[in-house]
């Protein structure tokens, strides 16, 4: 089930700086809220995001509860060679979501 959205160019020239936007559906529950019965809702946030491309983690983020629900992160990387750009998000429950897009580099 796709819960993620990636925006990245399909093609680029080697050396181009390409912009990547990544978004995932996640409540980013802060741990500071209570439910309708007054019971605390346990914290569950995406705490780690990584982008791997051409054999290396090119961008990563450690996130805290101050990041908005359905986290959105935009960053850039230099186009080096054709292949997948992969993304992973990990939450407090240890669940991991992954996504991948192909880029064609000329």
């Amino acid at each position: 089930m796709t819960r993620t959205m990636i925006s990245a160019p399909e093609t680029a020239r080697a050396g181009d700086v390409v912009e990547i936007k990544a978004m995932i559906a996640h409540p980013m529950e802060t741990g500071y809220r209570v439910d309708a019965t007054g019971k605390p809702i346990p914290r569950n946030i995406i705490n780690r995001f990584e982008c791997t491309y051409d054999g290396e983690v090119v961008f990563a983020a450690d996130l805290h509860p101050a990041i908005s629900a359905n986290p959105f992160i935009a960053f850039s990387t230099i186009a080096t060679r054709s292949g997948p750009i992969s993304f992973t998000w990990t939450d407090d429950e240890g669940k991991t979501e992954t996504a991948s897009v192909e880029i064609q580099v000329e």
Binding site: V58, A61, T80
Partner: peptide, 19 residues
Amino acid sequence: AVFQLGPRAGRAKVQTRIR
């Protein structure tokens, strides 16, 4: 948040949404 970049980022620019 803490963002890890490097020379392969090409540009030192990060965007996100915060509370």
